[in-house]
Design a protein around this nucleic acid. Structure first.
Lengths: 216, 216
DNA sequence: GTCTATATACCGATAGAC
DNA sequence: GTCTATCGGTATATAGAC
């Protein structure tokens, strides 16, 4: 007797994934019990096994789908961006920040629960993460090759940028004082100009970090 | 019959804390069992309770001591820095990165296991984190007040800087190709100038990110 | 302060009726 | 596909001997 009258198997499966993501985010993968998950969905614990093979597989599927969605999201953004390195970097930053602000739970689970994966699953996710990082490295390398950027170590710089951008979803709240667009603009400015707010060389100061008022 | 001949209670307690930190880092707080911890120390699980009150208290103590050490480390660095905002920001960045590269385990546990704390302990750690963040916000505010920095939102910028700098300890390895000093210099450059590597206004380009070769 | 033994509870996963 | 019942194992924590 499920909680949702007339629920089909597919609906139950979707409900398990949704509830599982939220519970893993809030309590941690190890701390979440399958009894707890089943109660949230409104079924008995044993019934979960009609939809998942093991608890570990549920975690892996959630993370894998997040990574594949993130990769597709970025490909779309980069495909629509002009060929110039600065434009492509701006597109990457906007894509990354926007996605991360909208998928906070997925981001946390994918970043913090990797160690709960067994070696095989772990390696698969690391490969996807690597592929994502390479997209940013490629943009930075392009900028260096075109003489637009001066970067000593594009890989480490890419890691630093990703860490900074991802950090936004740890404090962002939809009902907070900053809109998503403002968070994107603020981080774009930080990536482009650093926190000293040196005047940009191309007359873009009107859209940069320095243009954002503290009370906006 | 402890594993270490002649071990005193204080030595056992220190061993528990050291092993606990490593196990929580590697496996997660919920995934680490007290039997596992005791085996690592070389005693029986029941003997742990001569040194810790509960598993939860062990976690809290480890995180609290890390935060207090970090705060003291930063105070020392800032006390030795000149009064100018740029110098103080450079001192903060160097202090933060250096400490984080040397205390990777503590940093991970303090950042990723907060949700395992009960509400009372959680609130205490959040207060310490807030105090730490305020130190960077104060430096940024000083720079804005003195006209050295142009920053629209010093709090969000501080969060972004902290996320970027802390991220370094996720990939840094002592035996890797970059020295600690190079990692500090690289991140200082990113904070000061952004990834576009615009020429600094004060003739510091020789020490900035752009001066670091990819092959260094 | 360490040990052995154990209390009490929950865990992931399975069996089999409906 | 969901249910009830349960298996075998482990969890934190405590009791009491030495």
């Amino acid at each position: 007797m499920g909680r949702i009258a007339g629920s089909s198997g597919a609906r139950t499966a979707a409900s398990i994934r949704r509830a599982g993501l939220r519970l893993i985010y809030r309590r941690g993968f190890e701390a979440m019990s399958l009894r707890e998950l089943a109660a949230e969905v409104g079924i008995q614990a044993a019934s979960l096994y009609n939809h998942i093979r093991t608890k570990q597989d549920l975690l892996f599927d959630l993370i894998r789908e997040h990574m594949e969605r993130l990769l597709a999201h970025t490909d779309l953004a980069l495909a629509a961006a002009p060929a110039g390195a600065e434009d492509r970097l701006r597109a990457f930053v906007a894509s990354h920040v926007t996605y991360h602000l909208e998928r906070k739970h997925e981001v946390f689970v994918a970043n913090f629960e990797l160690r709960a994966l067994d070696p095989r699953h772990f390696a698969a996710i690391v490969a996807l993460r690597r592929a994502y990082e390479e997209k940013l490295v490629a943009v930075l390398d392009l900028g260096v090759a075109r003489g637009e950027f001066r970067i000593g170590d594009t890989r480490i710089t890419a890691y630093a940028i990703l860490a900074m951008l991802t950090g936004a979803c740890t404090w962002y709240k939809p009902e907070g004082r900053l809109t998503k667009q403002e968070v994107v603009a603020l981080h774009t400015g930080l990536v482009m100009h650093g926190c000293l707010g040196l005047a940009p060389t191309e007359g873009r100061s009107g859209t940069g970090l320095a243009a954002l008022s503290r009370d906006s």
